[in-house]
């Protein structure tokens, strides 16, 4: 009777601190298959209050445990999806405006064309940029230690490469835009103590 009531308490997850060798509720096999009431080994009965508080293995502020390569695919995929989404919506808007007054069936096809075409174009462009940036970032990290100059260097190289076949002037402008964006990001993340950003996006680093 005593055993049953205590095992019921265990089952309900009510913490009983009186674990002792003479406690009959301790004498329960882990594999309890012979009775109808599934008895739980007291060793499996954990006080839920013990695991209420979140515990971190890593010290606070350790925002950079993962390398650039581990974030590369996520960053590229995110860029593709973001670009496709933005492009798709702008295509939808543009298509709705330009196909006013057309029969519904034609309009529908036209709208799909607008969305797909614009979404693909901007998604591909943004994805290629992210791919270049990630590639350069991984390369730079391979050559030298990871720091903010790698971010700026990778972004500059991305801008230069992306506009490399559009003439020297545009190439330079592309590099400058990359360097400017990366510098702004670095300054911003430094101003935010490198930590608030990490908590904002789950310590993701683009």
């Amino acid at each position: 009777m005593e055993k049953e009531s205590s095992s019921l308490r265990n089952l309900l997850g009510i913490y009983s601190p009186t674990y002792a060798p003479d406690d009959p509720s301790m004498n329960v096999s882990v594999h309890s298959s012979n009775t109808n009431t599934p008895l739980l080994s007291p060793y499996l009965n954990v006080n839920p209050y013990a695991i209420q508080e979140p515990e971190f293995i890593l010290p606070e502020g350790a925002s950079r445990q993962r390398g650039r390569l581990e974030y590369a695919f996520g960053a590229i995929g995110g860029s593709v999806i973001l670009g496709a989404g933005v492009g798709g919506f702008s295509g939808l808007y543009r298509g709705l405006q330009e196909t006013k007054g057309q029969p519904a069936k034609i309009r529908r096809t036209q709208l799909i064309n607008y969305v797909v075409k614009r979404g693909a174009t901007s998604g591909n462009a943004l994805g290629i940029m992210a791919l270049m940036y990630s590639g350069f970032g991984v390369l730079l990290n391979w050559v030298r230690d990871d720091d903010d100059f790698n971010t700026i260097g990778a972004a500059t190289a991305t801008g230069l490469l992306y506009k490399s076949s559009a003439g020297l002037r545009k190439c330079g402008v592309g590099g400058l835009v990359g360097a400017g964006l990366a510098s702004a990001y670095v300054l911003w993340s430094r101003a935010n103590n490198n930590r608030s950003l990490a908590s904002l996006v789950g310590s993701t680093r683009f």
Partner: peptide, 20 residues
């Protein structure tokens, strides 16, 4: 692999890289 909702982004990026 990443847990499920993020896996989509990851796979998308991996596929884009491979294809590009």
């Amino acid at each position: 692999r990443e847990p499920c909702p993020w896996r989509i982004v990851d796979d998308c990026g991996g596929a884009f890289t491979m294809g590009a």
